[in-house]
Computed example of a mutant assay.
Amino acid sequence: MSRLVLATHNAHKVEELRRILGDAGLPVELVGMDSFPDVPDTPETGVTFAENALLKAHAVAAATGLPAVADDSGLCVDVLGGAPGVFSARWSGRHGDDAANLDLLLAQVSDIADDRRGAHFACVAALALPGGAERVVEGRMTGVLVRERRGTNGFGYDPVFVPDGEERTTAEMEPEEKDAISHRGRAFRGLVPHIAELLG
């Protein structure tokens, strides 16, 4: 059985990709970065999701000697020209301050009419082999921004994002419902044929 590393310490991401690989019937043992405590995190210095995903995937493949998958994702708001984009996690200045990021975003679009509040979540997933081969897939979930937080599931911008065809925010959905339509789920599922090709 091939071993594959997902470049994250997030157990939920590992479980999500593990489920997707299992559903596809791929004989792959997936592990996260907790299995490699001596490997440092890779700085996300790229200016696109693809650059950051590839930076992380190649660094982890080189450090572990195993094929590696990495992803980078964020919220892209139409009237903000695609921002916050790759800066989504640190939009307010401090990395990972969800409440401050959300407050700033809501303030920036407070005077935007309801029919102009389009946005999408984007995720780029990258697969890199120690020998240098790479594959990249993007997944998107389009929708609109609401004016006030709704729901307690999820994280980041989930409480203000309503996917197309839904009336609930992604923070009002059950995790399984969100996984089925999410940008990350789509990117990971799109990577499955490449994993089968390169690890087969």
Rank of each mutant, 00 (worst) to 15 (best):
residue 4 L to K: 04
residue 5 V to W: 08
residue 7 A to H: 05
residue 7 A to G: 09
residue 8 T to I: 05
residue 9 H to R: 14
residue 10 N to K: 08
residue 11 A to Y: 00
residue 12 H to G: 13
residue 12 H to F: 08
residue 13 K to D: 05
residue 16 E to P: 00
residue 16 E to V: 05
residue 18 R to E: 14
residue 20 I to P: 02
residue 22 G to F: 00
residue 24 A to H: 03
residue 26 L to E: 12
residue 26 L to H: 07
residue 28 V to R: 08
residue 28 V to I: 14
residue 30 L to E: 04
residue 31 V to Q: 11
residue 33 M to N: 02
residue 34 D to S: 14
residue 35 S to L: 00
residue 35 S to W: 10
residue 36 F to C: 01
residue 37 P to F: 08
residue 41 D to A: 15
residue 42 T to L: 08
residue 43 P to V: 10
residue 43 P to R: 06
residue 46 G to A: 10
residue 46 G to E: 07
residue 47 V to E: 14
residue 47 V to R: 15
residue 47 V to P: 00
residue 49 F to S: 03
residue 51 E to A: 12
residue 54 L to D: 01
residue 55 L to S: 06
residue 55 L to I: 15
residue 56 K to S: 01
residue 58 H to E: 15
residue 62 A to K: 15
residue 63 A to P: 10
residue 64 T to N: 05
residue 64 T to G: 07
residue 65 G to M: 11
residue 67 P to W: 00
residue 68 A to T: 05
residue 71 D to N: 06
residue 72 D to R: 05
residue 75 L to Y: 03
residue 75 L to W: 04
residue 76 C to A: 13
residue 77 V to A: 02
residue 79 V to I: 11
residue 80 L to Y: 04
residue 82 G to H: 02
residue 83 A to D: 13
residue 83 A to T: 00
residue 83 A to H: 06
residue 84 P to W: 03
residue 84 P to I: 01
residue 85 G to K: 01
residue 85 G to R: 02
residue 86 V to C: 08
residue 91 W to R: 09
residue 93 G to Y: 01
residue 93 G to H: 02
residue 94 R to H: 13
residue 96 G to I: 03
residue 96 G to T: 03
residue 97 D to W: 01
residue 97 D to S: 09
residue 97 D to K: 01
residue 97 D to R: 04
residue 99 A to D: 15
residue 100 A to S: 11
residue 101 N to Q: 03
residue 102 L to C: 13
residue 102 L to N: 15
residue 103 D to R: 13
residue 104 L to I: 08
residue 105 L to T: 10
residue 106 L to I: 09
residue 107 A to P: 00
residue 109 V to D: 05
residue 113 A to G: 12
residue 113 A to T: 11
residue 114 D to S: 13
residue 116 R to M: 11
residue 118 G to R: 14
residue 123 C to I: 08
residue 125 A to E: 00
residue 125 A to P: 01
residue 125 A to D: 02
residue 127 L to M: 09
residue 127 L to C: 09
residue 129 L to G: 11
residue 132 G to W: 03
residue 135 R to G: 10
residue 136 V to E: 12
residue 136 V to R: 13
residue 139 G to V: 09
residue 141 M to L: 15
residue 142 T to P: 10
residue 143 G to Y: 04
residue 147 R to N: 11
residue 148 E to A: 15
residue 150 R to T: 07
residue 151 G to A: 06
residue 151 G to C: 10
residue 151 G to E: 08
residue 152 T to M: 09
residue 153 N to A: 15
residue 157 Y to F: 14
residue 157 Y to T: 07
residue 160 V to S: 02
residue 162 V to L: 04
residue 162 V to Q: 03
residue 162 V to M: 00
residue 163 P to H: 00
residue 165 G to T: 08
residue 167 E to S: 15
residue 170 T to K: 03
residue 174 E to M: 07
residue 175 P to E: 09
residue 176 E to H: 15
residue 176 E to F: 13
residue 186 R to S: 10
residue 187 A to I: 05
residue 187 A to G: 07
residue 188 F to N: 02
residue 194 H to F: 14
residue 196 A to V: 11
residue 196 A to R: 15
residue 198 L to D: 14
residue 198 L to A: 15
residue 199 L to K: 07
residue 200 G to W: 06
residue 200 G to L: 06
